[in-house]
Write a protein that binds this DNA or RNA. Structure first.
Lengths: 167, 167
DNA sequence: GACGGATAGTTGAATGCTCAACAAAGACGG
DNA sequence: CCGTCTTTGTTGAGCATTCAACTATCCGTC
């Protein structure tokens, strides 16, 4: 952020009033630390999965959510919600996973607009094969670095941030 | 993660021992909440900047870091470190920013391998124009949802996660 | 039951990112 | 100095994501 100019802007009489609530020092530090942490975690996991399992993290999440669903089946819109991805992104992702034979698309029984994503046996196997390495990576990136109290804090803070978003 | 199979794997005598340290319930919840939060924050900021300032968040970060550097100049490698991006990514990004006239590349005075990224006046203006909206988005995504204690916690936890990474 | 609007999902083009390969220059050891 | 190893940065191909446009279906209402 353009720090050095802020003072000037604030006292400038000819400029429109600077009513922006800038971040204070504490917020600034928390914000940058969070950015760093999030980026590093995401990069580490993405690389690990791409290298060891041949899929990006987003695709792993799709398989993981399907694996826990009844009949290993979810509606596209629900799956999109669970994986925090747009309809378009998920559609492309499922198309790719379908090519790999890991996911299949079925018609929704009652709503003819709907599509159901179903985890295939091959998809299950791919997930089971990828899971241990992934969990290790998650531990290395997060939980090995935090004590239980911090884990609880991380959860509480994350839920606050994620809760009822899209203001 | 393939939960329902875990019990089977653990008691299976013919399979190789499952020595993976899976996530317990608390870790699981913290992990998923964190994933959600990080994804939402990143998406919100990326969209806001793309819409209002015509640049992705990663590019904004490049401009922001340059704006705070002496002479608004940084070596590529340093800039990569500050923005948590790979050399390649940064190189592409700076190329793009150069086309827009927001950043210029200079030779490093002593190390002839090195390149210096310099924020132009137009780049400064673009950053100043984008900053208020961006800060608002950051507030809406993070700080409006947390009390000061949680902000301190977020910082501490993030620094732990980010610290000396790339194990 | 027909219309208007909302919802579900797909598609293609444009853009950014990753990976691997590369070039160019410094650093170091003999 | 000469060869090798490391560091710095760029490049191009391939892939993932985004955005906008589109189709199809459902829902509520008159």
């Amino acid at each position: 952020m353009p720090n050095s100019d802020r003072a000037e802007l604030e006292v400038s009489a000819t400029e429109p009033a600077d009513c922006t609530r800038w971040l204070d020092t504490e917020e600034q530090r928390a914000w940058r630390a969070f950015l760093r942490a999030a980026a590093q975690v995401d990069d580490a996991l993405d690389r690990q999965l791409q290298r060891d399992a041949g899929m990006p993290h987003a695709y792993y999440q799709v398989l993981a959510m399907l694996s826990e669903a009844p009949d290993r089946t979810l509606r596209m819109s629900q799956l999109a919600g669970l994986t925090t991805s747009s309809a378009s992104r998920l559609s492309h992702a499922v198309a790719r996973l379908e090519e790999k034979g890991w996911v299949r698309r079925d018609r929704h029984p009652t709503d003819r607009r709907g599509a159901l994503a179903v985890l295939t046996d091959a998809g299950w196997d791919a997930l089971v094969a990828a899971a241990p390495g992934h969990v290790s990576a998650v531990r290395a990136a997060i939980f090995d670095r935090l004590d239980p109290e911090q884990v609880a804090g991380l959860r509480a803070i994350s839920e606050r941030i994620a809760g009822h978003s899209e203001a």
